[in-house]
């Protein structure tokens, strides 16, 4: 059980579990045990799931005052799904989508120039994708560094 928990913990600590154990004077763990490996896998899945879950939460849901901002536009067949966009405020939508921006009042546009295209693309990128990538990156880093 101890090896399993440290396997999961080492992944979550991105491979710095060894250093933590040394610093706290904790006995070493058996990194070759099946329990440690099972812990690593569990830790990786948990990190990935945390990233996906965080992304889904950040993508939002339909609500009053929010609009769905597509990454791949509906006119190009993009689905209205949180895997293809986010629920955002009108201002955020307009400032990340030139097609939405056109329909804003001129007085609003005069106070709010469009950001550059890189920023627009980043804002339009589904938060689910960002969360999944962050979770996968953390899990990969943890797996690569744990057990060393």
């Amino acid at each position: 059980m101890r090896d399993f928990l440290w396997g999961a913990g080492d992944v979550a600590l991105l491979g710095f579990g060894d250093e933590l154990r040394d610093a706290l004077g904790i006995d070493p763990v058996d990194m070759n045990s099946t329990a440690y490996t099972a812990g690593e896998i569990t830790g990786s899945v948990a990190l990935l799931a945390t990233g996906v879950g965080g992304g889904i939460r950040a993508a939002g849901a339909a609500a009053r005052g929010l609009e769905f901002s597509h990454f791949i536009p509906a006119r190009m067949g993009g689905a209205r799904s949180i895997w293809n966009g986010n629920f955002v405020s009108t201002a955020t939508h307009a400032l990340s989508d030139p097609f939405r921006y056109r329909f804003m009042p001129r007085s609003w546009k005069a106070a709010n120039p469009m950001p550059n295209r890189a920023s627009q693309l980043w804002t339009r990128t589904p938060n689910t994708a960002k969360g999944t990538a962050a979770g996968a990156g953390a899990a990969g880093t943890g797996l690569a560094n744990a057990g060393c």
Partner: peptide
Amino acid sequence: NLVQRLDGGREVNAYALKNGKPAF
């Protein structure tokens, strides 16, 4: 000092930015 063209140049918006903000 900033001209933004949208929709193939159907809409052309002009800004005088000062410290990154539109100034009038």
